[in-house]
Design a protein around this nucleic acid. Structure first.
Lengths: 195, 195
DNA sequence: TACAAAAACTAATGATATTAGTTTTTGGGG
DNA sequence: CCCCAAAAACTAATATCATTAGTTTTTGTA
């Protein structure tokens, strides 16, 4: 009954912490409330719904991830930047796999929110690609290709999708990124041949 | 009270139909029961839990998907087969996007089940790759790369992850697959250079 | 034809999110 | 310094889930 000094931000913050510690599936309004020494209903003074809360958590997670990526590519360009961002992406997904799931479940939510997130996610990737002398449209294509590969890989990896085979996953990932690096190289080559 | 002649199989079948029609999120034991003219509790004579039921649905979906892929690559090899399986994968994911989600949520489930599914999913992909003269280990790496790209792409696409940009998604996907085709080509080239 | 197993049912429990309505706290204006 | 309105917390209730226990009904077969 003494006030806990909660607000939207601190509730989101607490949710992130809860999810990182106890996991995605353990989360509920009741459990969150308990961890804040508050009754469940009190949370609704600060957030409209569990969905809205998850959206906030997802956006915060996106910011964290983008920050990691941005940090990772600082001062790098071309393939150095490419391998760096790919490594940062995968590392974040592994180190914060519960948050990564929230990011990926974010998509299904609505309109504006999604656009803001998409814009953020795209930014460091486009920065990396800007070093390859691509046209505007090519950048969009390759941005999609890179994101697909990175997400597809970590999604399979984390969900146990390609367990146990006698081949190192780090090496698989390196090969995947190299494949894209080579593909980007080819774009330039083809342009030269066009002249 | 007259018997509905249900059994595990028909319940799974009905679940698939329900999910395809009304969607993943609309599903509940109660709604399923309603669609079968049965009380909720009766379903438990045939399935142990919602989780077990979803596992069954997921495995059935995997079978369908693998069948599509297998059909698509019949009589093809090398890049023909590669582009065919990639197209079939994406088409299935789009045409049965609710089922595709179930497949992807399958992963988190347990041990044996997962292995069986993984084995099935891998099969037609390895068949395609067998045309490229790869070593055993290389096959595993490239299988992971291809699966990552395909899943990553359709996941982003379906969840609205890379909406609206002025670049055709079909073309992005073609480029992604071409990138892998070129990568596979390079493996051979490098082997030749080794001699 | 009777009976036992299978299939359906009723009723209950315990999570869950959410809302309505009530009490408590507290910061700023008289 | 005190009062009061808004904000923050609370209590209580509802509705939706999955799931289980215990009961009745149906039906194949001995």
């Amino acid at each position: 009954m003494p006030r806990q000094g909660l607000n939207r931000e601190s509730v989101v913050e607490a949710s992130i912490q809860f999810i990182e510690e106890k996991g995605y599936t353990a989360f509920s309004m009741g459990e969150l409330a308990k961890s804040l020494n508050v009754k469940t209903a009190s949370l609704y003074n600060h957030v409209e719904s569990v969905d809205a809360l998850f959206t906030e958590v997802g956006l915060a997670a996106v910011s964290q991830m983008v920050a990691s990526e941005t940090q990772a590519i600082k001062g790098k360009e071309k393939n150095d930047a490419l391998f760096a961002i790919a490594a940062a992406y995968r590392t974040f997904a592994k180190d914060h796999n519960e948050l990564y799931r929230v990011i990926m479940s974010l998509q299904k939510s609505k309109n504006k929110v999604l656009e803001r997130a998409a814009g953020q996610i795209t930014e460091p990737i486009l920065q990396v690609l800007s070093g390859y002398g691509l046209s505007r449209v090519e950048q969009i294509h390759w941005q999609r290709i890179l994101r697909s590969m990175m997400h597809g890989f970590v999604a399979h990896e984390e969900l146990g999708g390609f367990s146990h085979y006698p081949a190192d996953k780090n090496e698989s990932y390196q090969m995947a990124v190299q494949c894209i690096a080579d593909g980007l190289q080819n774009v330039k080559k083809e342009q030269n041949e066009d002249r």
